[in-house]
Design a protein around this nucleic acid. Structure first.
Length: 268
DNA sequence: CGACTTTGACCAGCGC
DNA sequence: GCGCTGGTCAAAGTCG
């Protein structure tokens, strides 16, 4: 794709005004238009293939989530003992290569205690997601801008980490059950570990400009499969949009495709 | 004045 | 049962 895009740009820069013969220039223009048109088709096909593979990945991802869920159910029955594993273990052992982040042991952060606030609690264990966010070492704040509005309701120093853990509730909607815990990594102080519990029961609007790119680490399947599928789809779409929007090759190809489309409609 | 943050107290689960 | 620990509450303080 790269070579194609470069060729496109080079050829577009070649001005037909160099040809004194107007007919020849017209022919060249037509050839260029035809070439752009076929290139647009090719890009469309590629986009279709990307979409198909995305759907296949999505399917596979949901399958993995399903399997993880059934494993979690078994382990929950076997033992309800409190896990002594800190967040740092996850970073040290499981930092793999999913956009620079990784999946983590599924049961580690799933062992939240039953919430005291019964109005906010669920009869089922809520979905737990974990994100790593890189910050400046000099920045002591525990705020992760993720597009939602959070209200801090507590802060605690935990045993396995000298830096305090902050507790947030979503204040975007009055009855949103989502909670967030943010703590600096014990091993890497520039890394904020944000743990999300539950699902937003509202749509996010007007705050997208605030969104940064948190690095997902774990996305456990909760018992409610519909919710999980939606959220995982949302997450995958966000990942795809994020990576595509950062890709200059994709931008160039998109510009070419759009210009081809415009020409297709303007040229009789 | 309302929304939000801070922070000490309180509560409940878990291990011994 | 007791102590430790994580999570939550709620009053006081802060800010726009």
């Amino acid at each position: 794709m790269e070579a194609t895009c470069e060729n496109t740009l080079l050829n577009l820069n070649a001005s037909p005004s160099r040809h004194e013969d107007g007919v020849q220039a017209e022919v060249l223009m037509m050839e260029e238009l035809n070439r752009l048109s076929s290139e647009k088709k090719m890009l469309t096909e590629k986009l279709t293939r990307v979409t198909e593979s995305y759907n296949a990945l999505q399917k596979h991802f949901n399958q993995v989530l399903k399997n993880t869920d059934s494993e979690l159910d078994l382990s929950t029955v076997q033992s309800r003992k409190r896990k002594a594993i800190g967040t740092g273990n996850c970073i040290g052992n499981n930092m793999l290569n999913f956009s620079g982040a990784s999946e983590c042991s599924t049961s580690t952060e799933n062992s939240f205690k039953r919430p005291k606030d019964h109005s906010l609690s669920h009869p089922i264990s809520p979905k737990v997601s974990k994100y790593f966010v890189r910050t400046h070492a000099s920045d002591p704040s525990l705020y992760v801008r993720d597009g939602y509005q959070w209200r801090k309701y507590g802060q605690k120093v935990t045993r396995d980490n000298p830096s305090p853990r902050a507790y947030f509730r979503c204040s975007f909607a009055p009855n949103c059950p989502v909670k967030k815990k943010v703590q600096r990594s014990a091993e890497d102080p520039t890394l904020l570990v944000a743990t999300y519990e539950g699902e937003h029961n509202h749509i996010m609007h007007g705050a997208q400009s605030e969104v940064i790119d948190p690095i997902p680490v774990n996305s456990n399947a909760g018992p409610s499969e519909i919710i999980d599928q939606n959220s995982s789809r949302q997450f995958l779409v966000q990942q795809m949009v994020s990576s595509l929007s950062k890709d200059p090759i994709f931008k160039s190809a998109l510009a070419t495709a759009i210009s081809g489309r415009i020409l297709e409609h303007t040229v009789p």
